[in-house]
Every structure is written in C-alpha cells, then in structure tokens.
C-alpha cells in the first residue's frame, strides 16, 4: 500500500517535471497562513545547493541576518532575524517555502525581503545600481533556488 502511494507520488512528480515550467512569481498560491503546499518547480530541492545559496553574499545572503550553525564555515552571521537552527522542528515544509518565497504573507510587516516577488515595489531599482528599473524585476532567487533553500532548511533538525 505504502509502496503504491510512493509510486503514485513519483508518477505525479514525473508528470509535473514533464511540464517543466516553474510556478511564476505572480501565480504562487499562498495558503491562509502564508504557506505554499506544492514545490514551485515540481522537483525536490538540492540541500547542498541550498546551503550555498544561503551563505553566498551575491545570491541569497541569508546568513547576513540569520545565524545558522550548520553554515559556520562562512563568517559573520547576523542577528536581525531569528537563528535557523532547528527550524525543521518548528515549521512544516509548506510554511518554510512560504516564508522564503514571501515572508510577509506569514508575518505581515516583517523586515525580511520577498525572494520570489517581481512587482509592487516602491521605487524599484536595477539591482544595487541605484538606477530605476521597470517591473517586473527578476526575482531575488529562482524557483529552483527557493526549493534548494527549503530543502536545506528542512535538514536543520535538532531532534
């Protein structure tokens, strides 16, 4: 029984992959509490790449604000956001995906930037040039990078 469910799930994922189009930033479906149930890419994330995204300044730069003991090979973890140690024990994957995608859907007013949002900004700029840019902007992370970060965060269990 369990086996057949797994096979079925695999078949669904395979079907999703065949379509191969990630959910567009404007099409993301958030739940009532800001979570996102389904993978944005229909594929599993790569936790190893997620770790890289999180600690690289020019990509996710997550450690700029969050302490993550598992990433302590990279220096200077910030204190603006909460520590992410044990985050997988506190949150469901859907909620983690929602927070990484657009944390304001979970925590209205949070300082945390939305990593998969392309429109609706005040004075949108072209990256860090200070010059104006037309919306839609490229999202801060790609759908796959979001999934990779989510996959990495779901490995942060202390139990």
């Amino acid at each position: 029984m369990k086996l057949s469910t797994t096979i079925l799930a695999a078949a669904v994922i395979a079907a999703g992959t065949a379509k191969a189009e990630p959910v567009a930033p404007g099409e993301v479906q958030f739940g009532d509490y800001g979570g996102i149930a389904e993978s944005l890419t229909g594929k599993a994330g790569d936790p190893e790449n997620g770790a890289k995204v999180m600690k690289t300044k020019s990509i996710g730069n997550c450690i700029s604000c969050h302490k993550v003991t598992a990433l302590s090979d990279a220096p200077f973890h910030g204190e603006v956001g909460p520590s992410l140690d044990g985050v997988a024990d506190r949150w469901e994957e859907a909620q983690v995906r929602g927070i990484v995608t657009n944390a304001k859907m979970t925590f209205p007013g949070t300082i945390m930037p939305a990593y998969y949002k392309t429109e609706g900004f005040t004075r949108p700029g072209k990256a860090f040039t200070g010059k104006a840019a037309e919306e839609p902007l490229p999202p801060l992370l790609t759908a796959q990078q979001i999934e990779d970060v989510v996959a990495f965060l779901m490995t942060l269990s202390e139990e």
Binding site: I63, C65, V80, I111, F121, T122
Partner: peptide, 22 residues
C-alpha cells in the same frame, strides 16, 4: 523602498544594535 522593501526604520529604529553580516 526597492526590491528589498526596506525603510530607514527597519534597520535603524527596529534593529539598531544588531549585526547585519559584519
């Protein structure tokens, strides 16, 4: 402002005293 949606207050009122990177 901007794609990071940060105001002066987000950093300098709500988070002064905290480290952001180094």
């Amino acid at each position: 402002t901007g794609q990071l949606e940060l105001s002066c207050a987000n950093c300098h009122e709500d988070n002064y005293g905290n480290m952001i990177r180094a």
